[in-house]
């Protein structure tokens, strides 16, 4: 609740599911996803667009949900970390991150995953440097990034072999 400001009703699709909801005009997209839709997998780390934990896919493009307002998502299609797996079957990137110990506390992981899903869609055969550059806007304090990079290269190889889109 935010009785101080106006609300607007927005309609959007998140992880393939349609939502229509009244939101305060100043609510961030991150807060909307987390607290209104209860999709708490998207994390908020800095609220100033540097850490990348809140990264989602906005019409397929990675975007910082802490720097957008919920009303800007009206009529758009979003993917969050909850939408990456195929039912119980993890996305190859999720599987690879586990196998390569590419996560510890896991707080940055949702933003890493959405960023890297976009990378592998656009560049199915990235080099280690491509991966480093892709996640250079995502901060991780636990892993030193090493497991994330090797996991991404491994997932890319498996996705190429398996024809996963």
């Amino acid at each position: 609740m935010d009785s101080a400001v106006d609300t607007r009703t927005i309609s959007l699709t998140v992880n393939g599911k349609a939502y229509s909801k009244a939101v305060s005009v100043r609510m961030t997209l991150a807060d909307f996803l987390r607290h209104e839709l209860r999709l708490t997998g998207t994390h908020v780390g800095c609220e100033h667009g540097v850490c990348g934990a809140c990264t989602i896919l906005f019409d397929g493009m990675s975007a910082r949900s802490c720097l957008m307002l919920a009303v800007q998502a009206n009529g758009h299609e979003l993917t969050t970390v909850e939408g990456l797996a195929n039912g119980d079957e993890m996305h190859p990137l999720q599987q690879a991150l586990s196998e390569h110990h590419g996560l510890q506390c896991g707080f940055c992981t949702p933003g890493m995953l959405t960023t890297l899903v976009e990378l592998l869609r656009d560049n199915p055969s990235p080099s280690a440097d491509d991966v480093r550059i892709a996640i250079s806007g995502n901060l991780c304090r636990c892993t030193g990034y090493e497991g994330i990079i090797s996991a991404t290269l491994d997932a890319a190889e498996k996705m190429r072999a398996g024809g996963v889109k």
Binding site: G41, Q94, S98, C105, G106, L113
Partner: peptide
């Protein structure tokens, strides 16, 4: 790992 990767972990917020 699984809960963290699937967005199902439960942090304080």
């Amino acid at each position: 790992d699984r809960a963290l990767l699937m967005g199902q972990a439960r942090f304080v917020d």
